[in-house]
Amino acid sequence: MSASLRIARATGAVASLPARAIEPLMAGLQKAIGIKKMPWFFLLPNLLAVILFSLLPVFVNIFYSFTGSDRLYPSQRPFIGTYNYETLLDCGNYLDPSTCSRDLFWRALGNSLVFVPTQVAAMIGIALLTAICLNGNIRGRGFFRGVFFFPVMLSPVVVALTWQWILQRTGVLNGILTNLGFEPVNWLVYANSAFFWSVFVTVWAHMGFYTIILLAGLQAIPRDVYEAAKMDSASHWRAFTRITLPLLKPVLLVVFILAVIRSVQTFDELYVLTGGGPGSATLLMVQYIYEIGFAVQPRNFGLAAAASLLLGIVLLIFTLVQLRISRGSSNG
């Protein structure tokens, strides 16, 4: 036997050692519980993680939303029925948050209802445009792909601090404006401009992710279909609306759902950038939940839990509608 062959056999034997050690154990287990139950055994680690970190918190959340006081331990929390929900929904006029007993909840909800559609529309529009540009034959394509993806890798706090540095009264943007002869603007002090920059910064931070997904979708469309369209007298616009968009629809749908969920969850960037202000102009749902649950004394876990459940229900309805639409399109 040659030396190399002997080494190969020896390493093979060592490599298969764990397998050989575990085999009798597995065989015994299979005999004990039956082959049909074996998949559950392999799923167990992941199932435990899901139960412990996803399902259990949901039930704890439901429990908290029906109990009161600022105590953390469930045994010390008195049952108060739907009081938390009644408090949240107690409103003189639903269109006027100041008539509600928890007016910030309604302001945050209103802000989210404007923020999410605006941000998602801007996000997908800009990401699609960027993806189309990057899909073309431009110089330095790889470089630009990297540039647009880069912000995605940054920590949200870094993103927020960077933009705060740009947007503050004595920031970079005002420095440039002053040099060009314009009056400096206190961007984050006015409600409308703060809201605009909230949308802008979050789009800037996450756009690269959606651009990459859309770019992959664009590249999956065969080139010869476009050539056939060219032979078929299709203008660029018609090729875009009649070929690109329909063929990109499944990818767009995924991007849309991800973007909406991400947008509803927006918290960290704005918490650092605007703190929800000025006033409550950029206060979104998740920040509201965080603040009444953990920041404001006394901590009102029950109310926060109720608010998060209401948000969860809204998201659930939205997801169901999405599923409906996506099934409809894949069938049609």
Partner: peptide, 12 residues
């Protein structure tokens, strides 16, 4: 008019 090797039909 051209007939493509892959047919290049519009799949949707």
């Amino acid at each position: 008019a051209m007939v493509f090797q892959s047919y290049a039909l519009y799949p949707h």
